[in-house]
Amino acid sequence: MFTPSELERIPKQIERYMRDLEEKILIDVVHRIKVNNEITSTGDNLLYRLKQYGQYEQDIKKYIQSTLKITDAEIDNIFNNAIEVGYTRDKSLYEATGKQFIEYKNNAELQQLVSAIKQQTKNEIRNITQTTGFMVNMNGKKVYTPASQYLHDKLDKAAYEVLSGSFSYDKSIKDTIKELADGGIRSIDYSNGRSINAVTAVRMCVVTGVNQVVGHITQSNAEKLDTEHFEVSWHGTARPSHQLWQGKVFNKKELEEICGLGTPGGLLGVNCYHSYYPFILGISKRSYTDEQLEQMQADENTKIKFGDKEYTKYEATQRMRKMESQMRTQRKTIKLLKEGGASQDDIINAKVAYQATSQQYAKFADKMQLPMERQRIYADGLGRVM
C-alpha cells in the first residue's frame, strides 16, 4: 500500500510542528532567564520570578493549544487523503482477478475504522503534549521535570548564582542551554519516570496509527481476493532482524511467527517501515527473486572501514542518524546562545563544533557510499545558524 520511503515521509510535517513547539518553549525559558539576570535589585528580581511562575505555565498551554490545532488538521490530511491514495493502489489486484473493488468513498466499514484510529492518534498526541518536561542531570542521575517546575528551578538557581557572584551569567546561561538542547522537550510517563523526546513520540504515534489502518486494509483485501499469501516489502539499511524476512512471500501464520507481525519489534512494529501486500499465486509476480534478495543482503552486510571501525550499511545508517541528531542539537545550542545573549566566545565555539560534525558527516557518508540526508538536520526549521 505504501513504500517504505512513503511511510517514513508521512509524519514529517507533524514532526516539524513539534520541533516548532519545542523551539518556542526553549527560547521562552532562555528569554525569561535573560530578563531575570538584567534585574539587579534583589527585591525586583524576586517579584519578577514570582510573576513568571504562573505566566510561563499559561504561555506553555497557549503554545500547546496552538500546535494541537495544526497537528489535528495534519492528522485529518494523513488519514483522509494519504490512506485513500494507498488504498486505491490495490485496485489492480481486483481487476486482475475479476473481483469487485469497492471505492474508498463507498467503503463505510473502512471509513469508520479510519475515523476511529484518526481520533485515537489525535488523543495520543494530545496526551504527549500534556506531559512535556525537561531532562535534568542531578548528581549523575537523570530526573525528568515538568516544564513549569523547570523554569521555577532555573530562575531561582540563576538568580542565586548571578546575584551571589558564585557564577557569571555566561556560565549560568551556557549550562542551562546545554541542558535544554541536549534533552529537548520530553514526554514523561509519570507512572515510571521514563521519558522520550516529544518529537520522536509523536512520529511513532502517527506511524503506529497508519500501520494499524494499513494492516486492516491488507487483511481485508486478502480475504476478498481469496488469498492467504502476502509479499513483504524490501528496503535498504533495514535492521538485521528484518533483513531475514523482507522481500519474501509468507502466509498469515508465517507473518506472525517469522516476521513478528503484531509485536513491537516485528513487521509493522515500532519504527518499522515495511509493508505487506496480498499475493495471489499464479497471478502476482514477486518483486525480487531469492537470488536477488541473497545478493542484496550480502551487499548490505559488506563492511566498509572508516577510521578504526567497520560498518555494514545498517550500522553506517545508524551512525549517520546519530550525527544528524547531534547536529540538530548543536544548531539548537547556537540558536539558544544567541537568544540568551551569551558571550561571543561561547557562540563561536558552538559554531566550530557544529562545523566539525558537519564535515565529519560528509566524509563518513562518502566513504560508506550512502546519500547525505541533510533535510533531516534542517527539519528543525532554524534556518542558517552559521
Rank of each mutant, 00 (worst) to 15 (best):
A147K: 09
D153Q: 15
Q100A: 15
Y150C: 08
Y144C: 03
T67Q: 15
I83Y: 02
G165L: 03
F79L: 10
D90I: 09
L50H: 03
I70A: 09
K105S: 03
L155K: 03
N123H: 02
S66R: 13
D76V: 04
S148A: 05
N106H: 03
E95H: 06
K91G: 09
T131W: 01
A82C: 09
Y87H: 05
K91P: 10
Q55F: 14
Q52A: 06
S164K: 06
V143T: 11
E124M: 08
K105N: 00
A82K: 06
T145G: 07
T97C: 03
N139D: 07
K122I: 02
L93I: 08
A73M: 08
K91S: 13
E74D: 14
L163E: 03
K99H: 10
A158Q: 04
P146W: 01
K118E: 02
Y150K: 07
D72L: 01
A96F: 10
N80R: 08
V85F: 08
A158P: 13
D90G: 09
Q120T: 08
T97V: 13
P146C: 07
M138E: 15
L50T: 14
K154M: 15
K142G: 04
R89V: 02
F79N: 03
K141V: 07
R89Q: 14
N80D: 14
Q58W: 12
T97L: 05
T71I: 05
Y144A: 15
T88G: 11
I64N: 08
V143D: 00
D59S: 14
A73Y: 04
K99C: 06
D59H: 15
I102V: 07
Y104N: 01
Y56H: 14
V143W: 11
E124C: 03
I70G: 06
L163Y: 07
H152P: 07
